[in-house]
Design a binder for these strands. Structure first.
Lengths: 237, 237
DNA sequence: TCACACACGTGAGTC
DNA sequence: TGACTCACGTGTGTG
């Protein structure tokens, strides 16, 4: 913890004091009401808001900005550290492991887990009774593309595939691998797709919502008209 | 980037200069040979090592320490940031996502992946043809315990279970759940174990090596004596 | 202009 | 003692 007589703001304060611009407070600070609260409702706290805004000298403004900056930076640090603490609880390490080692563990763990989930040969491809959508982001390839896996499980219908292809086309996603398994009128689609890195986040998000609407369209269609589709397994690679 | 006329070391430098202790260099720094190299062979770089170590005044020592400190801190930052960059490539985000958002994504992703790997009902528990050991660290519970999963797949033998129990007892691991599946003379053991948080990392490591030696013991035993064990599935919960 | 994110150098604490 | 980590306030760049 920084003591109260710390040299923070030293240059500005010294300059301002030497030029007799204002009377400094007991800690070298001008008396200034802090409206900062611990409530999360207001993300931004303007220290002078609502109080004496009238006749603010440029020096006052600079000081207020500095104070604001200082507090914002503190909030930023707290945000980062809170996530690090979450990761500490998510991984096998005590609360005292340092940031670098923690992040090294996280990298290793994410790689492990990704490898594990990718090594599920049969189970993931089998159609289940419940509707599912998963869009799993993968690693970035060296040429700036993002490769990810999308899985969709729902009632089978004849125009599902054209709809799916339309979605992929409109999102400029390149299908590297497609696996389709149907059984008992249900279908599971597992796609390995490549997206431009620049729009990867948006693509993943858009694909997820597009698949959701696709699934809702399937559910809203008349169930009584359900055709019996021949069970088959199709892998395009 | 900090400009050369930055006020860094201002207090110390001013103090030293005002007391005429040394002649400052062109940037306010005393002329000092930096032996810092970019080679990774020497992790620590002592700026005055190998040069004029004789007649070091206390001020020189303080300055050298400060310089050392500054450089060490820079290395620390670089280490942390390099791990963050790795995570950026591991996740679906471009290189410009800020630290806090990146870490938020990482937390979310690790949770996703952990949930996925835990939801593999049949495949993971089925004995495979090859020997396997996996010790997967899990989340820390609120009371400071680390819960993790250990999986062992090898040839079945009558004294495997006693050996396993012995290992768990010696490592002070509490078995919360044990699942055993045998088929064709092979066995898969999946254990959910709790370890004290203080020794969690060591426990995970020790368990891994203990299981490895257990597996080697199985392999070195005479294969011709292999009994035919009745296939069964046993779940203790 | 200003809110935000980052790197930096530094004081403090820990082992 | 010194090597190490961390929080802090600050300067700077960006949108």
């Amino acid at each position: 913890m920084q003591p109260d007589n710390s040299p923070e703001n030293s240059h500005l304060y010294r300059f301002l004091a030497e030029n007799g611009v204002f009377n400094v407070g007991p800690y070298g600070f001008p008396a200034m009401q802090s409206l900062c609260s611990s409530s999360s409702s207001s993300y931004h706290n303007y220290p002078l808001e609502g109080s004496v805004i009238t006749d603010m000298t440029p020096q006052d403004r600079a000081l207020a900005a500095l104070k604001n900056h200082k507090e914002a930076e503190k909030r930023r640090r707290e945000r980062i550290n809170s996530h690090l603490d979450k990761l500490r609880n998510l991984l096998p390490c005590n609360s005292k492991t340092d940031k670098a080692s923690l992040l090294a563990k996280v990298v290793q763990r994410v790689r492990e887990l990704k490898q594990q989930t990718s090594q599920i040969p049969g189970l993931e491809t089998f159609p289940s009774e419940t509707d599912e959508i998963t869009v799993l982001s993968g690693e970035c390839s060296s040429d700036g593309q993002l490769i990810f896996k999308a899985s969709l499980c729902c009632e089978d219908r004849s125009d599902l595939l054209p709809d799916l292809i339309e979605i992929l086309k409109s999102l400029h996603l390149k299908t590297l691998r497609a696996e389709m398994v149907t059984i008992g009128g249900r279908i599971r689609n597992v796609l390995i797709v490549a997206a431009e890195k620049d729009h990867s986040i948006e693509s993943v998000h858009f694909l997820q919502t597009a698949l959701k609407s696709l699934l809702e369209r399937s559910n809203s269609s008349d169930r009584s008209k359900r055709r019996r589709v021949l069970d088959h397994k199709l892998i395009i690679q």
